[in-house]
Design a protein around this nucleic acid. Structure first.
Lengths: 266, 266
DNA sequence: AACGATGTTTCACACAATAAAACATTGAGA
DNA sequence: TCTCAATGTTTTATTGTGTGAAACATCGTT
């Protein structure tokens, strides 16, 4: 689209493409990898050799097939599960904030609480509950209810058997109504709430799917109800769903967008 | 100490060294990384750019510091915890088998059972209990007892409150004696047993430490007691301990051996 | 025994990775 | 406010190095 300048260094990029290919389908041989990536055998061989010396790929004892190496596991463990999610979400959160001009929150569940992984402050200064590192309730707030809706039934039961604090007059504390709300969230695939956690605030939340297909987090747009008309409701919802989809795609094993195989001719 | 042939492709190797450096110490800037790796700023910059485009490194919103990216987490998760251990151990197991000519087993704990991750068959054909993918008891066998010894006290209590099957006349089924044995294992830092799981077999087991410093697995040398004299007892023990240490080092965040930084200081 | 497929090695050339240095930007301190 | 120092970014020339093609070796199969 724009930049004629390409700072990518090709050899490294190809090596990373190789790793992605191995993650996507392990136990491939040199020829198979070369074919599917459009590289020559000798190149793949040397890339694999380099990666193997550092433990980033591992070869079968039978000396035939390759897979991701232990070092990837070690580094990945170092990052932690939240780290991957957080870093995958970061640029998307920035974009979502710029799009909506509202607050953006990334929230996960932690037992019977929620945990705010990161936030982006919108243009308008409004103090909301969400703040990075903070724990919150599971039964109030756009992202919280969404996470609860997609949690294991046993978690839902446990959460609903606790006392349900009313943070505002609009907080749903009736268990039957709460279960109804959860059902509607699952039917819709998103959640929109008003005033239930922070008085005067709306929240539009969308679900983020992890590599294993389960819902692992929520991203939400939040701001003052005064600015929340029908048009914004639509646009924020779409933006949140798109953002959630993009993060989910990044976290999927197939990776974002094209897998970057640069086609040379013939 | 042999092959002058170097198939490593330098650019890729440097990129991997960069990743290791970031894993070792995150939130570094271009200059700092360049200095500690002995590379030029522009090179580091372009490496980081390439890695970032694929999500293998992530930059702070404040546009200053870098860390491992989400894609590493995704690929690492794909490998699984056992995968990293298994692949790190593979070549070491091969070497250990070649050194000792005996069977080699890699075992982890799974609840109140053990799980055999991988085995290597020694030169002499002897059928032992261990077989990849198999579950075993926690109170008999060289690796099993070792894992139990280093397990959480609650796990030990739970394991000892079960009925303790006597696989051979030599299996320790007396709970007090078992606890004594565990204590001695912890004092020694290894475990040697004879005939307690497989009649006529010895087992010399050493503990493998994960990245977090806890003992996560056992590697053991096993064979027929007929071949187990005092000299072999010593050599096998040393070999097993060395192998365990090497695997542990591979799994540590600092990585195996030198981190490949070519020192050139001014 | 001959084949076909695979992994491995060699080699020469073009181009892409590299280092050096100029430039831009930021923040600190006087 | 101005200056200085440190950092990230960009440019450019040269060389070294990554690259593809093709030869070679090593299997397993028919």
């Amino acid at each position: 689209m724009s930049e004629p300048k390409d700072y990518k260094i090709a050899a490294v990029d190809r090596a990373l493409a190789l790793l992605e290919a191995l993650a996507d389908r392990p136990d491939q041989g040199v020829t198979s990898l070369a074919k599917s990536l459009g590289m020559t055998k000798s190149l793949v061989f040397r890339l694999l050799h380099t990666l193997e010396e550092r433990g980033f790929v591992s070869r079968d004892p039978e000396r035939a097939e390759f897979a991701l190496g232990y070092r990837i596991g070690v580094l990945g463990e170092r990052l932690g599960k939240d780290g991957a999610l957080l870093y995958a979400a970061r640029p998307v959160m920035d974009a979502l904030r710029d799009q909506t001009s509202e607050n953006v929150n990334l929230v996960v569940r932690e037992g019977l609480k929620t945990y705010v992984l990161a936030t982006r402050a919108g243009r308008h200064s409004i103090r909301l509950f969400a703040q990075a590192g903070r724990n919150g309730p599971l039964h109030a707030g756009g992202g919280s209810l969404l996470l609860l809706a997609y949690a294991d039934p046993s978690v839902i039961d446990a959460a609903l058997s606790q006392p349900l604090e009313a943070f505002t007059p609009y907080t749903i504390t009736d268990r039957a109504k709460l279960r109804q709300a959860l059902e509607r969230i699952r039917a819709n695939g998103y959640n929109i709430v008003l005033n239930d956690l922070d008085e005067g605030a709306f929240s539009v939340a969308a679900p983020i799917t992890g590599a294993d297909g389960t819902i692992i987090a929520s991203i939400s747009v939040a701001g003052a109800v005064a600015r929340f008309d029908e048009e914004r409701r639509e646009s924020h919802l779409r933006a949140a769903l798109d953002a959630a989809a993009e993060i989910s795609e990044r976290l999927s094993i197939h990776g974002p967008g094209e897998n970057g195989l640069v086609k040379s001719r013939a």
